[in-house]
């Protein structure tokens, strides 16, 4: 089998399994009360981690670049206006402008 077939089949299998484990094991019943706060707090923890790893990391190096400035500006726009669309447009425009100069 060629590399492409092995990679696609293998990555499909692990992705499907990872996405299935939680619903199979944690599904079909109410969460006990003490876990509810943990679940609520997973979203801010994971979202913040996704933001900083995409904004401050270049591979395994910590780095700042045009997209760092773009996303920071977008955060300011979101804070002032509350508009998600304005926020993402600002991120792209500022980042692209900094790369163009």
């Amino acid at each position: 089998m060629s590399t492409q077939v092995v990679v696609i089949a293998g990555l499909t299998a692990t992705t499907v399994a990872i996405k299935a484990i939680g619903p199979v094991l944690a599904g079909g019943r109410e969460l006990p009360g003490w876990t509810r706060d943990v679940v609520v707090l997973l979203a801010p923890a994971l979202l913040a981690a996704l933001v900083v790893t995409q904004v401050f990391a270049d591979g395994d190096q910590l780095a700042v670049g045009p997209q760092t400035v773009g996303v920071a500006a977008a955060g300011g726009v979101m804070w002032r206006t509350g508009s998600v669309v304005l926020c993402v447009v600002t991120a792209a425009v500022v980042t692209a402008a900094l790369r163009a100069v």
């Binding site: 979203a43 913040a48 996704l50 933001v51 997209q67 996303v71 991120a91 980042t95």
Partner: peptide, 12 residues
């Protein structure tokens, strides 16, 4: 490449 982190920041 700035759109995903900006969107996640907005959701956050």
């Amino acid at each position: 490449d700035a759109i995903y982190p900006a969107y996640f920041l907005a959701l956050l």
